[in-house]
Simulated assay, not measured.
Amino acid sequence: MMQFLRFGVVGTAGFVVDTAVLYAGLALGLGLYSGRAVSYLAAASTTWALNRAWTFRAAPRAPMARQWALFLLVNLIGFACNYGTYALLVAGVPLVAAHPVLGVAAGALAGMVGNFWLSRRFVFNASRAAA
């Protein structure tokens, strides 16, 4: 349970990064969809680093580049839930299109449980670290 709570705190930090990068991308001329793809990658990289250092700190250390890539790979399911929720809301709810942070929040919640399970099972798993 403590791991899940730490994962939630890290997810909150990821949400802040996601939102900040999205709004920066929008200010630089990226659209709502391409800006979100960039912001998601920044947030996923941030949450991987924080989860490695804090949430799953007791897990054996796999090589960083390999573990980061594995984190991104196994969390594609969570990404699909996250980005899919965001895209549906931006496309269908004018309030969300005007305030994309609402879609980012809804997407983050949609992907959180799956991302936790996948991360714990496949990325930060003692039996897989040596593989």
Rank of each mutant, 00 (worst) to 15 (best):
A105I: 13
Q3N: 12
L102W: 15
G11P: 06
F71L: 07
G84P: 05
L28S: 13
G14N: 04
A80Y: 11
G31A: 09
R128D: 11
L102S: 08
A43F: 00
D18Q: 07
D18I: 11
R120C: 11
S127D: 15
Y83H: 14
L70G: 01
W68R: 14
A20G: 05
L102Y: 14
G84Q: 01
L26Q: 02
G78N: 00
V123E: 01
F7P: 04
A105N: 03
R52Q: 10
T55V: 13
H99E: 14
L50A: 03
A108R: 09
L89Y: 09
L109C: 15
L28P: 08
L50T: 05
F124C: 07
A65H: 13
V93Y: 01
G111C: 07
F71Q: 07
L50N: 00
S39V: 04
A43M: 06
L118Q: 12
R57F: 11
R36P: 11
F79K: 06
F116M: 00
G25Y: 02
V74S: 07
A87V: 14
R6M: 10
Y83N: 13
N125H: 14
M64H: 15
R57I: 14
N115F: 03
A87Y: 01
F7H: 05
V10E: 01
A62Q: 14
V90C: 02
N115G: 09
A97V: 14
A69D: 00
L50D: 01
L70N: 08
A37I: 15
D18N: 12
L109E: 08
F79Q: 01
L72E: 12
V74N: 07
A108S: 13
S119F: 10
I77A: 14
N75V: 05
L89S: 00
M112R: 08
A131Q: 15
N75R: 02
P63F: 10
L28D: 10
G103D: 02
P63L: 09
G84L: 02
A24M: 09
V90P: 02
S127H: 14
L30M: 12
A59L: 09
A44D: 03
R36F: 05
R36H: 12
S39C: 01
Y83Q: 15
V96P: 04
M64A: 15
T19A: 08
N82H: 10
G14L: 02
G29I: 10
V90K: 00
W68D: 12
A24W: 11
A126R: 13
W68I: 15
Y23W: 10
T47K: 04
M112F: 14
A24P: 00
L30R: 10
M2A: 15
G111F: 02
R6L: 11
A42R: 02
A106D: 01
R57W: 09
Q67A: 13
S45R: 08
A69R: 11
A53G: 10
F15A: 12
P100D: 06
L22C: 00
Y33L: 14
W68L: 15
